[in-house]
Amino acid sequence: MNSVVCIAQVPDTESRIKIGGDGRHIDETGIKYIVSPFDEYALEEAIRLKEKQGGDVTVLGFGPDRVQQALRESLARGATRALHVKGDSDNADSLGIARVLAAAIRSVPHDLVFFGKQGVGTDNSLVGPMVAELLGYPQINVVTHLEAADGNVTGHREIEGAEEVIEAAMPAVITAQKGLNEPRYASLKGIMAAKKIVIETKSITDLGLADSDIINQRVTLVSLALPPDKSGGRKIDGADPLAAAKEIVRYIKEEAKAL
């Protein structure tokens, strides 16, 4: 059972976001980068499959040099191989990123290709299904439970108020949702072992792609802005529950018009 796990490196979810000088990207100073939280569930699931059934877990990241750090961390948790495709992921649109990843995935043996259900930060939820389409694979999206055996994969997909149990033949694309598993931390042994693994690097030209295939082709960023300050918020003392309740009802009726 061989898996590829696509790892997006994103700003720590606790980061304070400031707009950069170009008005289109964030100011990266002081930002700590982490593995996108949903990708941790994806990685954990791939590692568990490997532990049960053998094979390789290759982590794949597209982006600037700092992406190596996210790949190194993933190796320390239990991935067995890492591939870094260097390039300007910040100025690529989702389909551009998907093209790069799809080309890289073709060069690595795999039965399953894992993604996070969403890259935290860009919050697109686009890349996984796009790669599935480019590779002609089935996709099971937003998965909270997974079983893979005998060339088939079954995933539980979260939908509104229900869960679908979906079956597909491998190779297939899976996008991971919280609940799939409890990701482990890297052990000291894992960290030491990871140091011995060489992270393979490629450029997009090595993959037969040109900048024009990926850079802001179809979706262009016009501007990035902070949300307007919430002014006019009121805080009142709730020591008298009845008075507080009456004030809330008045607010709901008159301002939210929801009663």
């Binding site: 700003p11 979810t13 980061s15 304070r16 976001i17 707009i19 964030i26 935290v120 930060g121 860009t122 919050d123 979706v219 262009t220 960023l221 016009v222 501007s223 990035l224 802005a225 902070l226 949300p227």
Partner: peptide
């Protein structure tokens, strides 16, 4: 909304 609602991106 991007960055968990901490910013808004305008795209074409």
């Amino acid at each position: 909304p991007v960055y968990s609602g901490k910013a808004f991106a305008t795209v074409e």
